[in-house]
Design a protein around this nucleic acid. Structure first.
Length: 415
RNA sequence: GCGACCGUAGCUCAGUUGGUUAGAGCGCCGGUUUGUGGUACCGGAGGUCGGGGGUUCGAGACCCCUCGGUCGCCCCA
């Protein structure tokens, strides 16, 4: 009977408990509440899909596919992938379930996602996001509504300090192609001044040079042309409508002409809410318009826009004060002869919707102190004089809860 | 995939140029004090110092390998 060594947790997974879980739950609850205010309907989605769903959405040649997806073969040899994002799966569902009939479709979801990468601050292999999408609307008001909702969620969570909404446009297909060509020309001309990484990017993903962290790249990246000169009239009008809508709704934003998306199904609006409080992983909520995606999945040309935000990162940032909750009542059983009465009181409280727990083990004379340390709002101690059990209700400030607890216990006593 | 830093009790961490039997606080268990009390004291359990190899009379400490963690790079859908 050899004792096995306890298997460890998988790298990059988390067991979320205690304070961390309370923060996590608060983020999800807040999102669900705000999302209803905007009439976004909740959808439940599978955690894995055919690999093709994501391979199309992510571009087949990038690192993303080759090294960063959790892909595996099932027993019939089909290639499956644990979802690395929500958007592609939602787009697939939109097509395969005939959800076109609901367009423009406002949907929201949240849950675990998987990326095969080395964990670092706020980035895990299994991580969690909240997500909101509007599929089937090419109206700039859709972008505005999504952004206003995103801002609302962050405000409700108390995440506003040091957070800015950075906004850019990638234009329509014609604008984007013209800009991209101009950028490549610019970077080619200064190739020798770029870092080695960025010289590689020039082949693979030239737009990404714009937001390179390498100091050496900044002069060339900063002097690169903005998209503005290449915008078609339609694309410019679209962007103006988005910024005008944000101004009207009172959502502050700043233009970041260096903010880009590598994949070419992205059109028009790209945005990120960025904090200065999370080190290298400062993006807290990100999204944009992906008018080309659904077509690339074999569907009809369908405009769509959406965003997602990492729950772990939001949880790290949200206000302690906003958490609230906690246990209503803790019972300290200071004499075992009062166990029956204490158990009855506990049942009555719970049946009345008051949360309650009891300390009834260990040294009786230490149970009061233990109960006091639990930080419940109300403490009830049970003692016994040899004839009768006796309950004492205590709480720091006299409160409605205190009165309610006393009421429930009296009712239970007369029964 | 690459780089830097870190692994000592359940948790947070001390541990001197390498030198007796590896420590503290918190938590846990027991005892005493207080008795409407969130206090204080005493005691106990709990460690192959992440693992393996090496150097040395002697390694928690130094060297190599390995595993794990953290942060960063790449990538970021």
């Amino acid at each position: 009977m050899g004792k096995i060594t306890t298997p460890g947790a998988i790298r990059g997974t988390q067991d979320i408990f205690g304070q961390d879980q309370e923060r996590f739950g608060h983020v999800v609850d807040t999102f669900d509440r705000v999302r209803r205010l905007y009439n976004f309907r909740r959808v439940e989605m599978p955690v894995f899909e055919a690999t093709a769903v994501f391979a199309r959405s992510l571009g087949e040649t990038t690192d993303v596919v080759s090294k960063e997806m959790y892909s595996f073969e099932d027993r019939s040899g089909d290639s499956l992938t644990l979802r690395p994002e929500f958007t592609a799966g939602l787009a697939r569902a939109y097509l395969t379930n005939g959800w076109q009939q609901y367009a423009p479709l406002k949907i929201a979801t949240h849950g675990p996602l998987f990326r095969y990468e080395r964990p670092q601050k706020g980035r895990y292999r299994q991580f969690h996001q909240i997500d909101a999408e509007m599929i089937g609307s090419g109206d700039p008001q859709a972008d505005v509504e999504l952004l206003v909702m995103a801002d609302h969620v962050l405000r409700e969570l108390g995440i506003t300090e040091g957070v800015t909404l950075q906004l850019n446009t990638l234009g329509d297909a014609a604008s984007r192609d013209a800009w991209r060509a101009a950028l490549i020309e610019h970077f080619q001309a200064h190739k020798d001044q770029l870092s080695k990484d960025s010289q590689d990017r020039l082949e693979r993903n030239p737009l990404r040079i714009l937001d390179s962290k390498e100091a050496q790249d900044r002069p060339v990246a900063d002097s690169a042309p903005d998209i503005d000169a290449f915008l078609t009239d339609e694309a410019r009008a679209f962007f103006d409508s988005v910024t005008g809508g944000l101004d009207a709704a009172g959502v502050a934003w700043t233009r970041n002409a260096r903010l880009v998306r590598g994949l070419d199904y992205y059109r028009h609006t790209a945005f990120e809410f960025v904090t200065d409080r999370l080190g290298a992983q400062g993006t807290v909520l990100a999204g944009g318009r992906y008018d080309g995606l659904i077509e690339s999945l074999g569907g009809p040309s369908t405009p769509a826009v959406g965003w997602a935000a990492g729950i772990e990162r939001l949880a790290m940032l949200c206000d302690d004060a906003a958490l609230g909750g906690g246990l209503d009542v803790i019972i300290a059983l200071e004499d075992d002869r009062a166990l029956a009465e204490a158990t009855a009181a506990q049942a009555s409280l719970r049946n009345s919707g008051i949360s309650c727990d009891m300390i009834a083990t260990g040294s009786p004379r230490k149970r009061y102190d233990k109960a006091a340390k639990s930080n419940a709002k109300v403490l009830i101690s049970f003692q016994h004089d040899g004839e009768l059990a006796k309950a004492n209700i205590r709480s720091a400030p006299e409160s409605d809860l205190h009165a309610k607890v006393a009421d429930v216990l009296n009712v239970s006593a007369t029964k």
